[in-house]
Simulated assay, not measured.
Amino acid sequence: MTNESAQSIVLGDVEIIRIVEWQGPFVPARGLVPDAAAEVWKDNEEWLAPDHWAPDGDSAVVALQSWVLRSGGRTVLVDTGVGDGRERPHSPLFHRRRDGFLGRLERAGIRPEDVDVVVNTHLHADHVGWNTRDADGEWVPTFPHARYLVPAADDFHFGPRNDYGGGRHEEDRLVYEDSVAPVHRAGLVDLWEGTHRIDDHLVLESAPGHTPGSAVLRLASGTDRAVFVGDLLHSPVQILDPAHASCFCLDPRRAAASRRRVLERAADTRELVVPAHFGGAGATEVRRAGTGFALAGWAAYAGE
């Protein structure tokens, strides 16, 4: 798997296109998943390295990526990456990036005006960045014909009034002001809670914990199933033991409960699990294994 690439797979009547912005070592492995002991990484090195763990530096390897679904005659973009030219002083990898994401979309046959629905699984910086683009010094919606589906609880939490509570950091303010508020002002945001059906094949469901409104997107078409889990999973070691939260989870205990619930259903119904940040193939099937889960095979893309 190389950086800056696109891959595709078809499930039932839905085409899935993977757009990778970047992949590489991100942070120390136990910094990303604090409760996963060193032995967990070492004992699973054979399949964790090199796509999910870099043993030499003991770093977790992640991808920055988005997923495009062609479903029911519409184009649905799931999460919009980091964005160009953002002030992200708290995140050096995200700060003032220039990565050509829109060019990668267009090379995959997707123009901004063709996108009908944008799904933000949650409102962290690396999931909303290309919601907007810079137009002569003003942030405007990148996808002018799309409805932006935003979890209401996240909007309440990260918005200026912090209605959900829990406090808001400076980096949260920056993200909301340049990547969420302009879409609100354009009248393109649909807030939702609980569940939200996009079409006959796609349904959003709340899975709180990582953030107050963190969501998953379920796909069901024919006999095929998938679940786009956003940041419920940052690393495959969390599949082995879903109690392990990432360092970015605002409510680790609640995130663990959501993660176990989603993985149980995925194992029982053979859903393809599609996390936001897995490197390598980026998506996997899972099966039950004792009190946790195990990987049952990676996604196979067209031409592979």
Rank of each mutant, 00 (worst) to 15 (best):
A257I: 14
S59I: 14
P141W: 13
A299Y: 04
A186Y: 13
P160Y: 06
R97K: 12
R287L: 03
A257R: 12
L295V: 14
P92Y: 09
E177H: 15
N131V: 00
D268F: 03
D116F: 12
T121L: 14
A257Q: 11
D126K: 06
P252S: 02
T2V: 10
T80I: 06
E304C: 11
I19T: 00
V286A: 02
A220D: 13
Y148H: 14
F94S: 03
V286T: 05
V273Q: 01
W22P: 05
H157Y: 10
D155P: 07
F293V: 02
D251P: 02
D126C: 06
I16T: 11
G280N: 07
G100C: 04
A6D: 02
A38V: 13
D172F: 08
W298D: 15
L219H: 06
V68P: 02
T80C: 14
A153Q: 04
S8W: 06
E15V: 07
H169D: 12
P25I: 07
D126T: 08
T2P: 14
D200F: 00
W47G: 02
H234A: 00
F278P: 00
N120V: 06
A135G: 02
L149T: 09
A49G: 01
L219K: 01
V150I: 15
I16Y: 01
A49C: 06
L295A: 02
R70S: 09
R107V: 05
A49Y: 11
H201S: 12
V229H: 01
H196K: 12
